[in-house]
Design a binder for these strands. Structure first.
Length: 822
RNA sequence: GCCGGAGUGGUGGAAUUGGUAGACACAGGGGACUUAAAAUCCCCCGGCCCGAAAAGGCUGUACGGGUUCAAGUCCCGUCUCCGGUACCA
């Protein structure tokens, strides 16, 4: 296909122009009113060795078009880019080759920067940040110290995923469940759970605020739902069961205190500490065997194998606090130690899992809630056992039965009254539980931010803020220490240091480093004041730009990154760094770009498209335009090279129009109308990020321009301004060639004339019983009876109406006339 | 299982929120230009029926019902696909 238009030269020329002139540099100008400022943010990339993927330019083009559009509309736009440059791949590479991760990372960053710049994005490159830069991570460490000082960072022994092969702890999200059991995401090595002392961040303390904050955000409902699920708040009660012949009390959390009368047994998790205390000698062997088996199982595939309920009786009995019934205590691995209290009251009548367990082991099932959709239920006499209900557990709300004084009330009421009753008797309390766990924050790796703490004897002393950054020492080997400690632990001269509190005590540096999430938790703040050496960022500047008005990125960060960043932002709000407690006002997830086979792009499928090749062959403008034309931004869509060629063809057509001589005369009214419709539609669609339909409108205009022999200046000039945010290079070049002062990037968005966006003549459809039978032209806003008369006068309609009984006539002005006939 | 989203031509997708279904593009077909090809320009393009053609008719937005003068759009039920999550008490 032809590549007539010299995109290579043009794109290079204008990229140089923008760079030399710092066209997109932005400063905090107080004269610009608040409502004319916008912070448009991309999720910054991890600079992988593979280079840019075609998925990156999708979101980046979207925000670029939006930013350019806003600028042309008089906005000050903060639109920065940077690199999430700490991370495991560079360190793994170092392990293999001995190359310093910094070297690899910085080479990759250089390559990424070139690739990103080749697409002509309007970033303010003066604000670029990289998370591995000591000037940057100095402030990551500073934030950690604020967390530490507020008691939000603590050390605890927790079971963590440990990879013996790599000698390091992995985050939950770095572990995949495979048919062979849990494996590391990178390298596919087996991993296992080990209890290790780790740094934890108390994100659970912010659970409610993280939940409530979602209400105020303009985010996709699906992402909010995922975060709500992740936080997993549930309300209920903690209920204390006394144990027979024991001083121990078994506490459970339940969301259904109203079913307490139906609790016929209890189950504790195999890891529960009370197991040791309560197991009777007769059951000891069996219990121990079960615990051992379940430990193995959890190391393998607990979730998948766990379809059938297993368990074992401890020999112990508990007393149901509401009716003093004696109920057996079992152990079962369907009860998780990590949720609630690690023990449950089992209500097999009204919980599917408990029901399944009870049926497996022949435990009694009592109905205590009547399904209101079924008329009757069996009232069991007090103390009656063995009365079962229907085929399955009824888990809905209904009317309490078999519940002593509480019978007859509805579920919600019983919940409240039983909680009150429990509280009065001091047998339980109202309680809220979360699925959300505290955040395991330490990694036994080299290539991350050192945690700025020093162990002085038993005391932990923070590195004073004015001594930050605490930089990474050079190491001889990137291999983990093999002791569950990071490679830093082997660097004696770095680890050994004086205690920073000024005493003579010897100190040992914390050798754990932070996870990759740390740097990306707050990068959007540093863009605001990237070179500040005294503060994380100047307060006035933060107030100038925050919150982020539009944040675009992939849905894969729906929970972790976006939750962690919100958490840190709220802490920084509490610390007084920022003035609002949510960082990202509006969030949009771009859809995935799939291979041309409709499958996820991957090397193994051989369907990967390299943006460099596309830019080389068709140009950045074609790539940008194609990625926006493929379909709605938020939707996943397959790549099509012929589709891309179509976009290139369109730009070629635009270019050839530009080779015509400009004519200053008055353009035909039809063309002017199309122009003004185009200005309006492209403006509206760009504002809504509906780029695909904006582009088709521009195509309509270009198609019409081709029907004329002359190119009218009055059409061409505004068209170039409309085109500019989408394909800025060709627009700049044509703008300059048309004799206007560059750059078009700084031109004003054209204003459309409302009157020219509407047609005076409209096609009115005539329907008979809702079926289109004819159509005619009518003046805009014609009266109803005028339309009806015109419709009736049509020959074809007359033949339909002849002899028919018109029961009703519906006239929709500017649209249709519908005759309902008998 | 649960939560979220989506099913429209050969393909990617439009459709002013109830008012001409298929804009725009890709692929395909035809024509013009050319010695020829490429490129370019113009035209056609959901299916079926009738017709030489023009016209016309029927049908059609996953499937089955419903509301309405009118349904891709609203309601009820079913199926399929994608994303997330999974014994969370």
């Amino acid at each position: 296909m032809s590549k007539k238009y010299p995109f290579k030269t043009i794109e290079q020329k204008w990229q140089n122009y923008w760079e030399t002139n710092k066209t997109f540099r932005v400063v905090e100008d107080p004269a610009i009113p608040r409502e004319k400022r916008a912070y448009v943010l991309d999720m910054f990339p991890y600079p992988s060795a593979a280079g840019l993927h075609v998925g990156h330019p999708e979101g980046y083009t979207a925000t670029d078009i939006y930013s350019r559009f806003l600028r042309m509309n008089g906005y000050a736009v903060l639109h920065p880019m940077g690199f999430d440059s700490f991370g495991l791949p560079a360190e793994n590479y170092a392990l293999k080759t001995g190359t310093h991760p910094r070297t690899t990372t910085e080479e990759n960053i250089d390559r990424f920067r070139v690739q990103i710049k080749s697409l002509g994005f309007s970033y303010d490159w003066d604000r670029e940040v990289s998370t591995h830069d000591p000037d940057y991570y100095r402030w990551t460490q500073w934030i950690f110290l604020q967390l530490y000082k507020r008691g939000l960072a603590y050390m605890e022994e927790v079971p963590v995923w440990y990879c013996p092969e790599m000698g390091t702890v992995l985050a939950n999200e770095e572990v995949l469940t495979t048919p062979e059991g849990p494996r590391s995401e990178r390298g596919n090595y087996p991993v296992e759970r080990r209890p290790l002392r780790q740094w934890m961040l108390r994100i659970t303390e912010y659970a409610d605020r993280l939940l409530e904050g979602l209400e105020t955000l303009d985010w996709p409902e699906s992402i909010k739902a995922m975060q709500r699920n992740w936080i997993g708040r549930s309300e209920g009660a903690n209920v204390r069961f006394t144990l027979e012949d024991s001083t121990e009390v078994l506490e459970v959390f339940t969301t259904r205190p109203d079913t307490l009368f139906g609790a016929t047994y209890m189950v504790v998790s195999p890891e529960h500490p009370v197991v040791k205390e309560i197991t009777r000698p007769a059951q000891a062997a069996e219990v121990q065997q079960y615990i051992d088996a379940s430990r193995l199982k959890s190391d393998l595939e607990r979730t998948d194998l766990a379809k059938e309920k297993t368990g074992v009786f401890t020999g112990a009995y508990a007393i149901n606090p509401v009716n003093d019934e004696r109920i057996p205590v079992w152990i079962g691995d369907y009860v998780l130690m990590s949720y609630g209290t690690g023990a449950i009251m089992a209500v097999p009548g009204h919980d599917e899992r408990d029901r399944e367990f009870a049926e497996t082991f022949g435990l009694p099932i009592i109905q205590v809630v009547a399904n209101p959709d079924v008329e009757s239920w069996e009232e069991v006499p007090a103390g009656g056992r063995g009365a079962t209900i229907a085929e399955a557990a009824f888990t809905g709300n209904g009317i309490a039965c078999n519940s002593g004084e509480f019978s007859g009330q509805d579920t919600e009421a019983v919940k409240q009254s039983i909680i009150t009753w429990l509280e009065q008797k001091e047998r339980g309390t109202r309680a809220v539980n979360y699925k959300l766990r505290d955040w395991i924050f330490s990694r036994q790796r080299y290539w991350g931010e050192p945690i700025p703490l020093v162990h002085c004897g038993d005391e932990i002393v923070p590195v004073p803020e004015d001594q930050l950054p605490l930089t990474l020492p050079e190491v001889e080997s990137y291999k983990p220490a093999g002791t569950g400690e990071s490679p830093l632990a082997k660097v004696d001269e770095w680890v050994a240091c004086g205690c920073p509190d000024g005493s003579d005590r010897p100190g040992r540096r914390e050798t754990n480093t932070m996870p990759q999430w740390a740097g990306s938790c707050w990068y959007y703040l540093r863009y605001i004041d990237p070179h500040n050496t005294a503060k994380i960022a100047d307060r006035e500047k933060l107030d100038y730009w925050l919150p982020v008005d539009l944040y675009v990125g992939g849905a894969e960060h729906a929970v972790l990154h976006l939750l962690y960043a919100r958490f840190w932002h709220k802490v920084l709000f509490d610390v007084g760094v920022v003035s609002q407690d949510e960082p990202f006002q509006r969030l949009v997830n771009q859809g995935m770009i799939l291979g041309s086979d409709g499958m996820r792009m991957s090397k193994s499928r051989g369907n990967v498209v390299n943006p460099d090749d596309v830019v080389a062959e068709y140009g950045a403008d074609s790539l940008r335009l194609y990625e926006m034309f493929m379909g709605p931004l938020r939707q996943s869509k397959p790549w099509s090279t012929s589709g891309l060629m179509g976009m290139h063809r369109f730009l070629d057509r635009v270019w050839r129009l530009g080779e015509r001589e400009l004519f200053d005369g008055e353009p035909p009214i039809a063309l002017k109308k199309t122009l003004h419709k185009t200005i309006r539609k492209v403006g509206d669609d760009t504002r809504n990020l509906d780029f695909n339909t904006a582009i088709s409108q521009m195509m309509i205009l270009v198609n019409e321009l081709y029907k004329e022999d002359t190119l009218y200046r009055g059409i061409w000039e505004p068209f170039l301004r409309v085109l500019a945010p989408y394909t800025p290079h060709i627009a700049e070049e044509l703008w300059e060639r048309a004799g206007y002062e560059a750059p078009v990037s700084c031109a004003e968005w054209p204003i459309y004339d409302e009157a020219l966006t509407t047609d005076d003549q409209l096609t009115i459809v005539v329907q008979i019983n809702g079926k289109v039978r004819a159509e005619f032209q009518a003046d805009r806003d014609s009266d109803r009876d005028v339309l009806e008369t015109q419709a009736r006068s049509l020959e074809k309609i007359q033949s339909y109406l002849a002899g028919a009984d018109v029961k009703r006539t519906i006239v929709v002005p500017n649209r249709l006339v519908n005759f309902v006939i008998g």
